[in-house]
């Protein structure tokens, strides 16, 4: 799945030099202030009705991820087109193929376990920026497709279980998960999986109940309900992150042209192996594979 750098260019420019440990810009709040998320140590669940702007948010994070040094992407998109532009930059791109998805999740879990062993051996509890290990960003668009539609019942359950493992394990070892779905109720995504996501973004919903499912019980009664977002206002959402209180944000929007421009540029500046291999990298990825 790795891309080959075009040979037409005589020289390749130095990349943007971002890092996944940098705060990721996702939009602005009602005060006009930029909103940043610390994605690397948190899992993000974005939900809301179709056309609400979930993909815009997810693409912002992907766009940041591909321009980052030492970052690998694992993309799940049963709809293909939402995360498709980044497919050549990702270490794995899973379309409507749940078997492939389960394989990848198993590999990711092995990597996570190995990393924790490494951390234990180094008397640490959390991966830090200077460790030389890559950040493996897992992005799932339309999570419900994998947990309810594709594959057999057993496969769907296995997928959910493995993902629950990754979401609970990945946070401290540089393997964050960003998932988007339409309505994360218990019949679509197990509540035990949903509750593991620390950051929540509620895009427009049709009811108070739906909003409560995304943000957590009780917020709608306090006035924080995504059902008051106008249907025409795409990208507006309630974000529950730092601060403990949901705040209204507007996710930045990348046009298709922007997305493909960023993808082309990232492919141009990235090394053929996806990310540079640091000398101290204990090569878990290859071990896991």
């Amino acid at each position: 799945m790795t891309t080959t750098t075009p040979t037409t260019a005589g020289a390749v420019p130095v990349g943007a030099g971002l890092s996944m440990f940098d705060p990721v810009f996702i939009g602005i709040d009602e005060f006009g202030q930029p909103v940043y998320l610390d994605v690397v140590y948190h899992n993000l669940l974005a939900a809301g009705e179709p056309g609400g702007g979930k993909s815009g948010l997810v693409n912002n994070i992907c766009g940041h991820g591909v321009l980052c040094d030492n970052t690998r992407l694992v993309l799940f998109d049963a709809k293909l087109v939402e995360l498709g532009p980044w497919r050549d930059l990702a270490d794995a791109f899973i379309g409507p193929d749940i078997d492939h998805g389960i394989d990848i999740l198993r590999r990711l879990l092995v990597v996570a376990t190995n990393r924790y062993t490494w951390l234990l051996a180094n008397r640490r509890r959390k991966l830090a920026e200077g460790d030389g290990m890559s950040v493996i960003l897992t992005v799932i668009d339309e999570l419900a497709m994998y947990s309810t539609v594709l594959g057999t019942k057993a496969q769907q359950e296995e997928f959910s279980t493995l993902l629950r493992g990754l979401v609970s394990l990945g946070r401290a070892c540089g393997m964050p998960v960003v998932a988007a779905t339409q309505r994360p109720s218990w019949d679509i995504i197990p509540a035990s999986l949903r509750d593991l996501f620390g950051y929540r973004a509620a895009f427009r919903c049709t009811s108070l109940n739906s909003s409560n499912i995304i943000l957590g019980q009780g917020w709608a009664e306090q006035g924080y309900t995504a059902s008051d977002i106008a249907p025409t206002n795409q990208g507006a959402a309630y974000l529950l992150a730092e601060g403990g209180v949901p705040r209204r944000i507007k996710a930045a929007y990348l046009t298709d042209t922007d997305i493909y421009n960023i993808a082309d540029y990232a492919a141009w500046t990235r090394r053929p192996t996806g990310t540079p291999a640091p000398a101290v990298d204990p090569t878990e990825w290859e071990m896991a594979a």
Partner: peptide, 17 residues
Amino acid sequence: VGSPLVDVIDPTAPVSA
């Protein structure tokens, strides 16, 4: 809302899909 990512890239990068 625009994204600052658009400003850090070179839009003339060769197509590489």
